[in-house]
Design a protein around this nucleic acid. Sequence first.
DNA 1: CCACCGATTGCT
DNA 2: GCAATCGGTGGT
Length: 188
Amino acid sequence: MALTTPRLPRQFFVRDPVVLARDLLGPEGLLAGRIVETEAYTGEADPASHAFRGRTTRNAVMFGPAGHAYVYFTYGMHHCLNVTAEAPGTAGAVLLRALEPLAGVEVMRARGDHGPENRLLSGPGKIGRAFGLSLDDNGRDFTRGPLGLAAGAPVANREVAISRRIGISRAVELPYRFAVVSSRSVSR
DNA sequence: CCACCGATTGCT
DNA sequence: GCAATCGGTGGT
């Protein structure tokens, strides 16, 4: 699979379908998944965003150029992945919430999830575990491996459900969650 | 320095 | 419904 330049900026990957891939450059090989659920987070106008109170050590990548990985560590155990989506100086990112596995299923299972295949990547924390993400991945350029984005198969607008974001306590009314309705890999 | 807490998950 | 688990953040 060829890893290509992400289309920028400020896209929501469920609508402009994209595949996330990680090339481990070793015996483990390629891990990949089709993006089926995302959420948008912006900056000072979005109280639910990590960037709401301005630039800090943790969220600095959100203020950088588009097409980079913003990885954050939460609940003492989960690494979640965003794709930055704004020009430098403006905070904005797309949280990847669920993927359908496309490659590397056995490696993902070996990292501890023994559920059904279509549930291996059905949540932001599960993506982090299955892909082996860590804070070392924070700031990575998706156009310069090992993390990459590639064009996926088209999805009709009627197949995309728009709803409220999950797991937040502020700005809950904003319709910034995007999910492929027919996918069995969307989070719960 | 310290107390609080979270863009989650899985088990009861 | 709730515990696990810990680094970032903000207030003292």
